[in-house]
Each structure stands twice: as structure tokens, then as C-alpha cells.
Amino acid sequence: MTGPDAPDTALQPKKKGLTRRQKRSLSRGAQYVVFVAAVIAFAVAADWDRLANQFAQADIAEQMFPEVITLALKNTVLYTLSGFAVGLVLGMVIALMRLSSVGPYRWLAGVYIEIFRGLPALLIFIFIGVAVPLAFPGTEIVGGTYGKVALALGLVAAAYMAETFRAGIQAIPKGQMEAARSLGFSHARAMISIILPQSFRVILPPLTNELVLLFKDSSLVLFLGVTLEERELSKFGRDLASQTANSTPILVAGLCYLLVTIPLGFVVRRMEAKAQEAVK
């Protein structure tokens, strides 16, 4: 509007002390100093020798291989995937019930979600391990421990996935269903051919997140009582830790979890970025 030497400084408040920018960088600098000081204090205070002795014994870690991968990690992945599969199918059914025009279906689905989302996964495992054999004496859940884990994890996962599916289906504009119906699609066929393929893109990232959660929850299998061959990462690590009176196996088991969850998290972020782009 006016030139650089225009006499409009009189209209502006007098600048005293630091500018906003200077204040901001000063505050930022203070935060860095506090952070670095905390890290140094922590590093100095910790007894690294004892820690290394207890958690990083190379020979004990070596003992764990290859079983930690071929048995423990394999079982963890198996438990997780079977639970995820059960959760996927059951969650889809519950989501469709929740969106149904039939009142009792909606009600039942709502009750299911509230119960299984509200209970700790641990209690579900104990329930499956104890209550089911009591209620139905003589019956065995198909697949033994694997079947029980798939069921317990699936029951928990279904409650969360149902809500994810519901949100994904409701995110699709109403006009899509109307267009499909007006072309002669039945409600079910329109769901399968038109609505679900579109909502799948939306829910892929949250579903993968759910997979990460299940991966960690699979450690609860130890409350079912498992044989040596059925042990997964946590149980395997804990057993070895008590055998060797050293915690190195816990650290190794932890690293094995991260080996899977960190790449999965990376995949989720990639998918989210892609979904964001698709919206544009």
C-alpha cells in the first residue's frame, strides 16, 4: 500500500523487548536444553553394567535361535492371523447387523460391541479357557489351543472391527446406494459390488492398526495353558528367562515384536497417505 518509509509506524504498537519470533526460538531452545539434560541425567544415573548383565547376554541370546523365530514368532503370527480372520468375518456380520433395518439385529449388535469392547482381552481368554469347557462338557473347540486363541482374539477384534466397518460403510455417500438400487441391484448385491469395495479403501489403515493390536494381544495365550510347541514370543521369552535366571530372552522377544509391528506401522502410514491422495 505505502512505501517502506511511510510514516505508519506511529499507528503500530511500540515494540518493546523481544519480537514474537525471538521469543519462539528462545522457548524452543529452552525445551531442547531440558530434553538433553534429562537424557544425560538418565544415562549417568542408570547402572549400565548391571543392565547389560541382565538384559544383553550374547550367549543366552544365541541359545534362543533359531527357535525364537521358527517356533515362537511363527506361533505369534499364526495366532494373530487366525484371530484376525475370525474378527474380520464376525466384525463384518456385526457391522451389517448394526446398520440393518431390523431392530433386534441392531440391538444385538450394539450389545455385543459394548460388551466385548468394554472387557479386557485377558478376561475373554480366561472365559474361553475356563467357562466354555465348563458350560459344554466334553466338547473341544476345533483346533485345540489354536482354535481357542482364534476365537478369543476374534471375539475381541470383532467388536472393534465392527465399528470400523460401520464407519467405513457410512462414509460412502447415500447416493451410491440409491444409484445402485435404481439400476436394479438388490440391497445385498449393492453392498457387495458397490459399497464395500469403496469403504474398504477407507478402512484399510484402521484394520491394519487392529492387526498390530492383535499381534500384541496374542501374548495373552499364556493364560490358556499351552504346550511347549504352542508357545509364542512372550511365553517363550519368559520361560527362557526363568530357566537362565536372566532377562535377555525378554529383550530378544521384544525385538521380535518390533520386527513385525514397525514395518506394519510403516505400511499403515503409506496407505493413509495414499487414501488421502485418492480423496483429492
Binding site: P173, G175, Q176, E178, A179, A180, R181, S182, L183, G184, F185, R189, S193, I194, P197, Q198, R201
Partner: peptide, 30 residues
Amino acid sequence: RRRIGMVFQQFNLFPHLTVTENLTLPQRRV
């Protein structure tokens, strides 16, 4: 409804399908 075509204000094309697939999928499924 198969005998009644409908055109909407907001078009309501299926965004996950190409133009041709928008036309072929209903024919094949319905």
C-alpha cells in the same frame, strides 16, 4: 427398477470403477 432408468442431480457414478466398468458392472450383475 431394471425397467426404470434414473439420473440424479449429483450423478452418483461409482468412483472406484472406470467409465466402462460403471456401465458394464450393473449389466453383468443385474
